[in-house]
Design a protein around this nucleic acid. Structure first.
Lengths: 129, 129, 129, 129
DNA sequence: GTGGTCTAGACCACC
DNA sequence: GTGGTCTAGACCACA
């Protein structure tokens, strides 16, 4: 897997795991790949995975069972979802509207720009088929 | 001034200047504080201001007149505005909608959360008066 | 059974057995559960129980009778009690007073805090009845 | 400096810093040695110091100023003191009394044992003089 | 100068 | 097999 050079790899690994949990690929309480396996899959150093797993453990999204491996916690999906929503609603959303106002943009202009971009993407995807 | 520890200070200084230009505090062609003064005001190392000014100069938002000082360019406001709008519409907006979808949030929920936060702020500001 | 993630499970198993001996649940010379049974009861790997039993055997707290099973030794309770007391008096007690001094706490403050916590617990237990 | 092999070095470094703060050697808001300097002083790898500093930063005992170094926070001493006291009073103290009870020891016996050990130490120290 | 990140490789305890 | 810790050494961004 290739990573964005601007953001620390261990944070990007966290995001990857968040997404696999949110999408239901890892169910609550399920075992996740060992540090070594994950390191091989992602083509990074095991230390880097260790760091990501450590943070996720601090957030109680995953848990370690000594000598066995890491498991998603029983409330993993709920924790991730809640945390992400809060961050989005309380940080990203206000920032979004502030920027909108500062740049003197109306919702209509934004929707228009978005749909243009979005449709372009759809067109590309359709062309692939 | 208080800076966010997560983001390089020179980038935060750039943002500050962008905002003073967008808000009209610095008009086009107006002289801005010298590197030294700015450094004292912001309580940062002059090198850090130099870096920020250098980038702004590359973007043609400010100009240097040797021996006199730095001035906003004649099109400063337009350049900043255009750059910011493009970044917002092509990067932030799509990301915003993607996140919205991933977290399974509707526009209504977002507007509601935003208005709640927003009103709370207004209340606090009114109380101060 | 729930184990503390921070401490090796085999050491925690040792503690459990120490306590059952001290409390008189296992009398001196009594048979204790087989490794297999204990592993099932505690929901751990049999190897882990083997390790705990091995250490207890080294300390002469339990004995193995080939083909029959494990038994507490004739002096089990005395050995455990002596070992625990020594460890407590020579290690825990001095550490306790050192910490007390370092944190500038008086005996009175400690007794007060303890009784508050203790009484709270009693209340909860009484409420259950 | 030499470390206890049983406990991770980075945790022992944390303790060292706690103690220097509690004793007033590092005042609140004071700069502490850079990661590299501390690593040289303690004769450990810089990564190990980084880990300790990172944890202390999470606990808001120290703060980083980009490109300058680490500083104790304005409330460092209070935070450390409070945290330590709480841990001691709510965890160590109850455990202490529980063990006391379990081992059927009286306060008198403990005080006696403690004073014996303590006096022995004093004697040794006096002999050195 | 400062810290932050990452790799490589080693050793150890635990299950 | 698993994770946890540590070292050595490198590179980079920042002030």
């Amino acid at each position: 897997m290739q990573f964005n050079k601007e953001i620390p790899i261990y944070l990007q690994i966290k995001e990857v795991i968040y997404n696999t949990i949110l999408s239901g690929t890892y169910e609550n309480g399920e075992r996740i790949p060992s540090i070594r396996d994950m390191a091989i899959t992602l083509e990074v150093n095991p230390n880097t995975v260790t760091r990501a797993y450590g943070l996720l453990q601090d957030e109680e999204v995953i848990e370690n069972q000594r000598g066995i491996g890491y498991f998603t916690s029983v409330k993993a999906k709920e924790i991730v979802s809640k945390r992400k929503r809060e961050e989005f609603l309380h940080k990203d959303v206000p920032l979004f509207f502030e920027t909108m106002e500062k740049l003197d943009l109306s919702i209509d202009e934004i929707m228009l720009a978005y749909q243009t971009t979005h449709n372009k993407k759809d067109t590309i995807e359709n062309e692939k088929k």
